[in-house]
Amino acid sequence: MKLFSFTTTPIDTVGARRELFDGAAGGYVSFEGWVRNHNEGLAVQGLEYEAFVELAIKEGERIVADAMRRFPIKAASCVHRLGALGVGDLAVWVGVSAEHRGEAFDACRHIIDEVKHRVPIWKKEHYLNGDSGWVNCERCASAPHHPHAHEHSGAHGVSD
């Protein structure tokens, strides 16, 4: 099983979930990030994901491997979509199996949070008004910012 991978076609959540099966696991938690129809007050029509794949896979694998050391879980995996997506499409999937649910929830949350912060993936949103923009790079470019501290408490187009 790959710890972290990209796909340009719809994510096979059934297949990915099957990979996490472990006879000693008592449960499985997954997170699905979906393309939302609005972001920061603008109606979103669709978006594109782009990644620096070589480094993104390394960094994604480091995140999942680190979660497997940090939490007593059986298996974990993350798949991210690349290319053009429409509203409602699945953008990212994280799955974790563990003996007990608590660790599975914690590890799943940890992985998605770290992926959003650290992996070199970018998202360009296309708005209904015809505009478009790279999330975190353009509309807040003039605001004073701590480097790469880009959480806007639920203001992103997907998966918050």
Partner: peptide
């Protein structure tokens, strides 16, 4: 060299 602008995965 790759310059990495603020990321936005997920």
């Amino acid at each position: 060299v790759v310059f990495i602008p603020p990321v936005a995965g997920g």
